[in-house]
């Protein structure tokens, strides 16, 4: 299924398959009859923070859901550390070492904070301990026995990120972690993401806010109509501000 012909491969990745931790090639996805992803192609190298930027409905969230196998109807190639994921069941994809924090946070209302935090099973060694997680997110310790959905939006976002750090997965997919949050919480999440990068996590981030993205990421892909239309190193962001604003319609 890997097709790297120039017509399909609109933005040839700079790195080759061997150095990428996650290599997505010509990824197509469908919700029922609607064709949502039209040949997404991008790479994430070990230790990088890479963002997918784009407007609402561009296909960023669908890309994440497709990588995780939540969107079942998919074609193309998703190689993670050399292992092909495209035909794997969702739980086996997670066990390959990817952890997903969804846009809507996915905090379970019938579970309290501790149960939510401990829910994702540990899949390999090397995850953060509960004590380390409480150091990063002290609020969660105070709210340990609250019902998950009684938390504020910011606390729910913290919990959604916190619970995927325990599992030993070294590749995190964070879908719009700053959406709808107060500036001070957005800054906190920015610090968390930089801290996680320091700790060696590799992160694929979906963002609409490129000002925030520029504070945490190494590289950016611009997504429109279900495929990558452009890419930038973070250092090039300032030089390409007008272009980016046009892409994102801000």
């Amino acid at each position: 299924m890997i097709d790297l012909s120039p017509a399909q491969d609109r933005t040839a990745p700079q790195s080759d398959l061997a150095t990428a931790m996650l290599a997505v090639r010509d990824l197509h996805a469908y919700y029922g009859e609607s064709h949502i992803l039209h040949g997404m192609t991008f790479d994430v190298r070990p230790g990088e923070v890479v963002t997918l930027l784009g407007r609402n409905g561009a296909g960023k969230t669908t890309t994440m859901r497709t990588i995780m196998g939540i969107v079942k109807k998919r074609m193309g190639s998703i190689a993670f550390e050399g292992q092909e994921l495209i035909n794997l069941r969702s739980d086996l994809i997670a066990r390959a070492g990817l952890a997903y924090c969804p846009e809507e946070r996915g905090i379970f209302s019938s579970l309290n904070v501790t149960e939510n935090l401990l829910l994702p099973p540990v899949i390999k060694p090397g995850g953060l301990s509960v004590a380390e997680i409480y150091d990063l997110f002290p609020r969660l310790k105070e709210r340990a026995s609250s019902q998950g959905t009684k938390l504020s939006g910011g606390e729910q976002q913290m919990l959604a990120i916190a619970r995927i750090l325990r599992t030993g997965a070294r590749f995190l997919l964070l879908d719009e972690p700053t959406e709808g949050l107060a500036p001070v919480i957005v800054q906190h999440i920015g610090r968390i993401i930089r801290d996680l990068k320091q700790r060696g996590f590799t992160i694929l981030l979906v963002e609409q806010n490129f000002h925030f993205a520029a504070t945490v990421a190494d590289r950016h892909y611009v997504v429109e109509h279900g495929h990558v239309i452009d890419q930038f190193e973070n250092s090039q962001i300032a030089a390409n501000k007008t272009k980016l604003e046009a892409y994102l319609g801000v």
Partner: peptide, 17 residues
Amino acid sequence: AYLRAATERPDLVQAMG
């Protein structure tokens, strides 16, 4: 807890492994 979580969001629980 797995059962209760899967009652709410089976897709997400499965994506946790």
